[in-house]
Amino acid sequence: MSVVKGPDSEREESIRQMICDHQTALLRMCYLYLHDAQLAEDAVQETFIKAYRAWDSFRGASSVKTWLTRIAIRTCMDMRRGFWFRHVERRVTPEMLPDRAQEAREDESALTLAVMNLPKKEREVVLLYYYQDLNVNEIADALGVMQPTVSYRLRRARERLRTELEGRENHD
């Protein structure tokens, strides 16, 4: 006898699968954006709570990953609007990276730090484009800006990263 699953159990399974597939990447993206592991965990939990509640309205117009990424970046943006974030933008140093970061190659951790130290708007587009593999249209939609703005910020970010990383190589 086959068991017919109701909509609730389908939703639960879908959410469980989404968490399994995407939570680590989202956690790392939120960390790169917020510069704080605890806040990043909160943002990811909040993302999945929102996804759980909005699951019935998800029509599959984009991939699940794109949908979750959009929720996560907006959650991070909301968290950043707090008083503390508006007035404090700490420059991240190697000592501030999470445990086991020293296991990475030096050029890898340098890139991670350079991304974390980008201006906020440029960091947003870099994370969405390079780390989460969203296209320019999807990024514009997620951030609520025009596509040329995304392209412009992306170009600026690339230039800034190149300067930062080349400067570091020359220094070494």
């Binding site: 639960e12 959410i15 469980r16 968490i19 939570q23 680590t24 956690l27 790392r28 960390y31 790169l32 592991a37 990043a40 965990e41 990811v44 939990q45 999945f48 709570i49 759980y52 990276l97 999470p98 445990d99 086991r100 970061a101 296991e103 990475a104 190659r105 050029d107 890898e108 951790s109 890139l111 991670t112 991304v115 390079y130 780390y131």
Partner: peptide, 24 residues
């Protein structure tokens, strides 16, 4: 390459195995 660099550096940041229970 970008993703690999980030993932290697942030290897210590792993998902929470009990996240589903917390969300639910």
């Amino acid at each position: 390459r970008f993703r690999e660099a980030i993932d290697h550096t942030l290897i210590g940041l792993e998902g929470n195995p009990f996240l589903y229970q917390r969300v639910a």
